[in-house]
Amino acid sequence: MTRGRWFAPSLVVALAAALTFLTLPVVAIFVRTSPANLLGALDDPGVLDALWLSLRTTLIAVAIIVVVGTPAAYLLATRTFRGHALVVTLVELPLVLPPAVAGVGLLAALGPGGIAGGAIEDAGLRLVFETAGVVVALTFVAAPFFIRGAQAAFGAVDRSWLEASRTLGAGEARTFLRVAIPAAAPGMLAGLALAWGRAVGEFGATLIFAGSFRGRTQTAPLAIYERLGTDFDAALALSAVLVAIAGALLLSAKLLGVRGVARAAR
C-alpha cells in the first residue's frame, strides 16, 4: 500500500465533521418549526422592541468605537514606543475575556458601589438598568475587534504614501484623514463588521451590568433567553433574525477583506 494514501481522505473527513457540527445548530434554527410559525412569532411587540433596542444600542456603540478606536489604532500602527506590545495586549484582552467576567468587571468599576461609581454618579450619569449601560457593555466587548482590524489595516498602508503626503506639505492630521483612512478603509470596515457582529450577540455582560427590561435594556439575545422557557418559537424566530444579521456582517467583512487585499496588491 502506498504510504500517505490515508492522509488526504482523513482531511476531508475532518472538514466534513467540522462543517456538519458547526452548521447543524444554525440549520436547526430554521427547520425546527415552520416558516409560518417563525414569521408569526416575530409579530410580538416584545420581540420587535428587543430588535429595535439592539439596533440602536449597537449603532451607538459602533459609532463610539470608530470615533475613538480609529485614532488609537493609527497610533498603535504607526508609532513604536516602550510598552507597545503590552498596550496592544491590554487593548485586545476583552477579546478573550468571558462575557460574564466583563459584566462583573463593569459592575465593579462603574456600578453604584464600583471604584469609579461615585464619579459616574457625580457626573449625573446612570448606567446600570439604563440603555446607556447596554451601550457601555457592548462597547467594551466589541471595541477590540475594530481596533485590531484598523491597526492591521493602517499597518498595511504603504509608508511611502504617508511620507509623500507629508513631503507635499499635508500635515499629520491631513495625512491621517485624507491618505491613511481612505487607504485603510476596507480593513477598517471589515473590523467594524466583526465588532458590530460581536455587539449584536452580546449577552452576559449586558445582563449582569445593565439588567433586562423590555425596551430599555432587553436586547435581542436577552429576549431570546427570556422566551426560552415559555415561547420557544419566539426564541427561534429572534435567533433566526440574529443569524441573518450575523451572516450578513460576516459576509461583508469577508468581501471587504478581499477587496482590501486586492487593493493593497495593486
Partner: peptide, 14 residues
Amino acid sequence: VRSNEPDVGGISAK
C-alpha cells in the same frame, strides 16, 4: 421595576 432577571441569582446580585 428596572430589570426582569432570569433567576433569583440575578436579583440577589443586583
